[in-house]
């Protein structure tokens, strides 16, 4: 089988697919930088958090509960709860990648975030339909471009944040929501009825959990309800199939 994919074409495709996510993430990175410095973190500490955590949701939640003295245990617990989903995401994506040295995987998967993970899953499905695997260049190249953009946005936010004012005024906070809606829609369009049921169950359960238990429990509870709905509505007539290769 011929393979016309090169490092250059893969990186270009990765960048083009990532562009909307970068545009949506920039205001959030700016916002984090601005909020973190407003809470007393130095710009260096805010940038370090973005580079080492690379997790918008957990970072914004951390800023929310940040006070002095710094509640390290609460911060780590909240981060774990919010990011437990990465466990499922990497378990789902990892088998779709070509064989790689362990070190490359350990470093590469640091760049796993919601948006680029969804793009990689989507790309992997397309490549599978064409009878081949997604390239590591696409997955990790895209991931590390996203890390670079996120760190740059944070640095900018930490420096100019105090002069910007409320990002809600510009609707910038909703960009994050809109991009997730778009990503969910692409999954639902590709999948069957189980996809719609999973989305509806997840939305309802997450909204109720957010009202009753508060963040970040809604993520775990919503996701669990969605998986349950997909499992319960699964019809064996569709035929059993192995998920991993």
């Amino acid at each position: 089988m011929t393979d016309d994919r090169t490092v250059s074409t893969e990186l270009r495709a990765a960048a083009a697919d990532l562009a909307p996510a970068v545009i949506a993430a920039m205001p959030i990175g700016l916002l984090f930088g601005a909020l973190a410095t407003a809470k007393g973190m130095s710009p260096l500490e805010a940038v370090l958090a973005s580079a080492l955590m690379f997790s918008g949701g957990a970072q914004l939640a951390a800023v929310e509960i940040w006070h002095h003295p710094v509640p390290i245990a609460a911060l780590v617990a909240s981060t774990l709860l919010i990011n437990a989903r990465f466990l499922l995401m990497s378990a789902s994506l990892a088998p779709k990648l070509p064989k790689l040295p362990l070190l490359a995987r350990l470093v590469g998967f640091h760049a796993l975030a919601d948006e680029n993970w969804a793009l990689s899953e989507s790309r992997a499905a397309e490549e599978a339909a064409a009878g081949r695997r997604i390239t590591a260049t696409y997955v990790f190249g895209q991931g590390w471009m996203f890390v670079a953009a996120w760190v740059a946005a944070t640095a900018l936010g930490a420096v100019v944040g105090p002069f910007l004012g409320d990002p809600r005024r510009l609707g910038a906070d909703f960009a994050f929501t809109a991009i997730f809606v778009g990503l969910v829609a692409s999954f639902v369009r590709r999948g069957g009825g189980g996809g719609v049921a999973a989305v509806l169950a997840s939305a309802a359960a997450a909204a109720i959990a957010h009202r009753t238990l508060g963040a970040p429990w809604h993520i775990l509870i919503g996701a669990a309800a969605g998986l349950l709905a997909a499992a319960l509505l699964h019809r064996p007539a569709a035929g059993p199939k192995a998920v991993t290769r």
Binding site: D114, E121, A242, V243
Partner: peptide, 28 residues
């Protein structure tokens, strides 16, 4: 990842992970 071999309902649940997680994040 290497140890998961799923079929039937478990596979359906596993495939629903992406939309279910993304939806839960934005539902509130």
């Amino acid at each position: 990842a290497g140890r998961l071999r799923l079929s039937g309902r478990a596979a359906a649940a596993f495939e629903a992970i992406p939309p279910a997680v993304l939806t839960a994040v934005i539902a509130p």
